[in-house]
Simulated assay, not measured.
Amino acid sequence: MTEPADDTDDRRRSIGARRNPETEEAILAAAEAVMAEEGIAGFSIEAVAKRARAGKPTIYKWWPGKTALMLDVYHRQKPADVHMDTGTVEGDIFAFLTGVFTHWGDTGAGQIFRFVVAEAQRDEAAADSLRAYAAERRLQSGQIFRRGIARGELSADIDVGLCADLLGGFIWQRLLTGRIERDPDQLRQLARQIVRGLVAPGA
């Protein structure tokens, strides 16, 4: 069972009134700067509003809380090569894992995402923001498996969403337990195991 076509702008269109692109860019740039200079502890809607010279009501109209804004900053910093089309499913998964773990390990992005997950355990607005973000990423990661179906590499009846959940669940678990994988041989083995399964040939 496959998913509908990806549309990662649905959540953004559904929150608040239509955004002014220049104001949105100013707020996101200010949020990114505050995060870089002050870290998670110093990140607040007040600090972003002051930096962007924007009213707090405008920010709250477009982002329901600081966690939602933080997630947009996090996604803004994610490198494009995380979602490469390499020509094979195994290659795509390897590129995805390499890109995400490198990004988490070499920048403050992993710490930001861990904070977001922690906030979601105690705050319902943060949990809503994380669920919406995870749904978008599930669709995006699902493209790896949709391409595999289109190429004839994967069975047409696989559940693309479940495949994306397996991939996403692995990287989240590794992040939250402090086991970011950087060994390319291990990542290739993981990609191979996800695609080829656990059953012995001919079993």
Rank of each mutant, 00 (worst) to 15 (best):
73 V>D: 15
122 R>A: 01
63 W>P: 10
125 A>S: 07
107 T>W: 11
108 G>I: 14
75 H>Q: 10
96 F>R: 00
77 Q>W: 05
81 D>C: 01
115 F>L: 03
110 G>F: 00
107 T>H: 08
127 A>H: 05
61 K>A: 12
79 P>Y: 02
87 G>V: 08
129 S>I: 07
82 V>Y: 02
87 G>C: 09
85 D>K: 11
111 Q>C: 11
92 D>I: 07
62 W>Y: 05
104 W>G: 01
132 A>R: 09
115 F>P: 00
130 L>T: 03
109 A>E: 08
116 V>W: 03
130 L>C: 08
116 V>H: 00
81 D>P: 04
75 H>L: 11
72 D>Y: 13
98 T>D: 04
131 R>N: 12
68 A>D: 02
66 K>F: 02
111 Q>E: 07
127 A>Q: 03
95 A>I: 08
113 F>W: 11
80 A>N: 08
53 R>F: 10
126 A>I: 14
101 F>W: 03
55 G>I: 00
67 T>F: 09
63 W>N: 10
56 K>T: 11
68 A>E: 15
50 K>Q: 14
57 P>S: 08
63 W>I: 04
87 G>W: 07
106 D>C: 14
69 L>H: 06
57 P>D: 06
111 Q>W: 00
112 I>R: 06
96 F>K: 12
61 K>L: 13
129 S>Q: 02
111 Q>I: 13
111 Q>H: 01
84 M>A: 09
57 P>R: 09
73 V>E: 10
132 A>G: 13
57 P>K: 12
90 E>K: 12
77 Q>A: 11
70 M>H: 09
121 Q>V: 05
103 H>I: 07
79 P>T: 13
86 T>S: 06
113 F>C: 10
63 W>V: 12
98 T>I: 02
81 D>A: 08
92 D>S: 11
121 Q>D: 05
53 R>I: 02
58 T>H: 14
54 A>R: 04
123 D>H: 10
113 F>T: 07
83 H>Q: 13
125 A>V: 07
77 Q>C: 05
68 A>L: 04
71 L>I: 10
55 G>Q: 07
72 D>I: 03
121 Q>G: 12
93 I>R: 06
